[in-house]
Every structure is written in structure tokens, then in C-alpha cells.
């Protein structure tokens, strides 16, 4: 027994063949996802891009028409963009990743296909999708608003990366929990509108009364949006934002997600 004594859980002979197997499964899951998420062919992927962009445009458009004065800067559309963009990035990643395992559960029947592979495949697609959304938004602003003026571009990008990480964290947690009890899915879905209200898309957390501030402090997305605004507006500084809290919460969510998937793998 040369290779046989290796305790691989799957049909792979060794670490190398096992990881090659996982890579193939992730690739196959990605292809499968692209084919079935919105109907046949690659048109589905385009639709997956148009939906969040439409969401973004409507949210900004409606509030733009109401014609409020922005709490920061002079352009209400830009102010809303700095809130709605990270929200949409989080929401779509969260929703799609949450559904990944439930939609693909039959695939676990095949030896070598693992719950982790299914999540990884979906996460890859969502990262590409989010990158495209951000590119489209930045290009659009650049052409409609006489050039884009982000005071700290790299910080702005980090903020968006935090958004997608937050989406991966919550998506994996609720998606994995839904395998124990489908009610988790309901809570996961409620999270969307809840975050819309409490994440500071329409307001600055510093302007809120202390009692509200203390509650929304626990919401990582409020920090992410604040972080993006600090990056965008050179004149804005925030006493609310806590980067150590944000980073440790994101890390904790990801670790929690992985732990729950490990449990799901053994029991479902």
C-alpha cells in the first residue's frame, strides 16, 4: 500500500490528485452555474450583470429625483453611489452564495464532489461578477460626471473587496445553515432589506443619535460604507469607523462559515 494509506476522504490517490480533482470539480461547477443560473448559454451571465446594475441605477435614480441635499459633497448621485455600490456587491454575493449548496445538492451524490467545491465555484463567479459591476459603475461615472475623483483609489478598492468578503461570509453561513433548517434561508433573505436601512446608505453614522450609533456599530457593512466614503471624499473623516472591528468581524464570519460547512459535510 504505497498511496493507499493516505487518508484522503475522496477517490483521489494522493494529495496531488485529490487537489487536481477539487480544481476540476470547481471548474465543472462554474460551467454548470453559468449554464443554469439564468437559462441557457452565456447570455445568462450578462443578465446576472444587468440585474445588480439595474438595482443600483433604480436606487440612485429614485433618490436623485427626490433631490435631497447630500450630507457630503455636492453630488447626491455620487454620495448614494458610495453607499449603494458596496451594498449591491454584498447583497448579490450574499444571495447567490447562500443558494449555491441548495441548488447543487444533487451533485454531492458523486464521489469527489464536496460542499466546499460547490461554494468555491459560486464564489469565483461572484467575484468576477462584482469586478465587472464595479468596472461598469466607475466607467459610467467617469463619462457622466466629468471624470471621477476618488481621493484614495486603493482604499476605495479595498472597501469593495471587504464588501464581497462580507457577502462570502454571510452567504456561506446562511447557505450552510439552510441545510439543517430551511428557516435560515428566510433569515438570510430578511438580511437584505434590513441592511438597506441600517447600513448608512442614506446617512452618515456620525450624524446619528448615540443610541442608534451604538446599535449600527455592530453592522460591518456600515463600517465598509463609511470606509469607502472616507476613501472617496478627501474632506471627510469619520469617528465612527473602526477598521480593527471591521477586519476582525470579517475574519470571524469567514471562519464561522468554514466551520459550519465542515459540520454540514459530515451530517447532511
Amino acid at each position: 500500500m504505497t498511496n493507499a494509506s493516505r487518508p484522503t476522504r475522496f477517490a483521489g490517490e494522493s494529495w496531488r490528485t485529490a487537489s487536481a480533482m477539487h480544481a476540476r470539480v470547481v471548474g465543472a461547477v462554474i460551467m454548470r452555474d453559468l449554464q443554469t443560473r439564468f437559462g441557457a448559454g452565456y447570455f445568462g451571465f450578462l443578465l446576472g450583470l444587468v440585474m445588480p446594475l439595474g438595482h443600483l441605477a433604480i436606487a440612485i435614480g429614485v433618490n436623485f429625483l427626490i433631490g435631497r441635499k447630500p450630507p457630503l459633497g455636492t453630488d447626491i448621485a455620487i454620495f448614494l453611489m458610495t453607499g449603494v455600490l458596496p451594498f449591491v456587491i454584498w447583497l448579490y454575493a450574499h444571495r447567490q452564495i447562500m443558494m449555491a449548496l441548495l441548488q447543487n445538492k444533487p451533485l454531492l451524490y458523486f464521489p469527489g464532489v464536496d460542499a466546499f467545491d460547490i461554494f468555491c465555484g459560486r464564489i469565483c463567479i461572484e467575484i468576477v461578477n462584482a469586478t465587472l459591476i464595479v468596472s461598469v459603475v466607475i466607467i459610467t461615472i467617469n463619462y457622466t460626471r466629468n471624470g471621477i475623483e476618488i481621493s484614495n483609489l486603493s482604499q476605495f478598492m479595498y472597501g469593495l473587496i471587504f464588501s464581497i468578503f462580507f457577502g462570502i461570509g454571510t452567504g456561506v453561513i446562511f447557505g450552510a445553515l439552510a441545510n439543517f433548517n430551511i428557516i435560515a434561508l428566510m433569515f438570510g433573505n430578511i438580511l437584505g432589506p434590513l441592511m438597506w436601512v441600517i447600513s448608512g446608505i442614506f446617512f452618515l453614522p456620525d450624524e446619528m443619535p448615540d443610541i442608534i450609533r451604538d446599535y449600527i456599530f455592530f453592522n460591518p457593512l456600515t463600517h465598509i460604507i463609511d470606509y469607502l466614503r472616507v476613501a472617496y471624499y478627501s474632506e471627510y473623516s469619520s469617528s465612527f469607523l473602526s477598521i480593527p472591528y471591521l477586519l476582525s468581524t470579517l475574519a470571524a464570519l469567514i471562519v464561522l462559515g468554514i466551520t459550519i460547512v465542515c459540520v454540514v459535510r459530515r451530517h447532511v
Binding site: 500500500m1 498511496n3 493507499a4 487518508p7 476522504r9 477517490a11 454531492l108 458523486f110 464521489p111
Partner: peptide, 18 residues
């Protein structure tokens, strides 16, 4: 390998069908 054992291990050196 589509279901996990409660305890114990399985070693495989061949490619198994479902």
C-alpha cells in the same frame, strides 16, 4: 465517500464510481 462515517476511516487507492 458521499456520506461520512460516524467514526473510523476509509482508505482508497482506486477511482470509484458513484
Amino acid at each position: 465517500g458521499t456520506e461520512a462515517p460516524t467514526s473510523g476511516r476509509i482508505y482508497r487507492s482506486v477511482r470509484l464510481s458513484w
